[in-house]
């Protein structure tokens, strides 16, 4: 049941399926929970305060790393961030980066700011993604998410996976890393794997 599946569990599943591929982690609580769950990893790019931007960053990365050894480029976004603009889905559908996996962790709220409801309950994210030319899955629970992510590995097309989670937010400390260090660490990791 979605009520029993938390964002932190979803993030843990993502890391377990893609332990070494680049993963873009979206703002606020998701970053803190990912760091608490699996640590601050060099293959994770933490987007501290650019809500709505991760899908575009992931698109650029997936295009630039099309010939790299990385299997997939995973981008995590929340329902609130995705609702900031669907236009990026059209751009993804137009450019069709085969390695892009866009995971929308949908708790139906702006979870980092006090769980105010978003419009996600009224929005079929997967249908929007399909209409824009992407593959799409709608999942609930850790097992379904793991299956969808694993299937995405063999897919030669961009895919959106919408994972419904509960509104539970884990108690975690502030994430206060220097963004310059975060970018440099990630860039070095990417560079080592690009050849």
């Amino acid at each position: 049941m979605a009520e029993e599946f938390t964002r932190m569990e979803a993030l843990t599943v993502i890391d377990s399926v893609f332990p070494n591929d680049p993963v873009i982690v979206n703002v606020g609580a998701a970053i803190r929970e990912m760091a608490a769950a699996v640590g601050v990893k060099p293959n994770h790019l933490h987007i501290l305060d650019s809500m709505g931007l991760p899908p575009a960053i992931g698109l650029g990365l997936a295009m630039g790393l099309a010939e790299s050894r990385f299997e997939k480029i995973v981008t995590v976004e929340g329902d609130g961030g995705m609702l900031m603009g669907f236009s990026i889905l059209s751009t993804i559908g137009m450019l069709r980066p085969e390695k892009l996996v866009l995971v929308i962790i949908d708790n139906g709220t702006y979870g980092s700011t006090g769980n105010q409801p978003t419009a996600s309950e009224h929005t079929d994210f997967a249908a929007v993604a399909r209409a824009c030319g992407m593959e799409a899955r709608d999942v609930a629970g850790a097992d379904e998410l793991r299956v969808a992510l694993t299937e995405a590995k063999s897919l030669r097309a961009p895919i959106m996976i919408r994972a419904r989670v509960s509104t539970k937010t884990a108690k975690t400390p502030y994430f206060l890393k220097d963004p310059v260090v975060l970018a440099d660490t990630f860039r070095r990791y990417i560079s080592a794997g690009s050849a």
Binding site: G60, M63, G64
Partner: peptide, 11 residues
């Protein structure tokens, strides 16, 4: 965002 991703990828 797209430019940033491309730059990080070395493109």
């Amino acid at each position: 965002g797209i430019l940033a991703g491309l730059e990080l990828a070395g493109a």
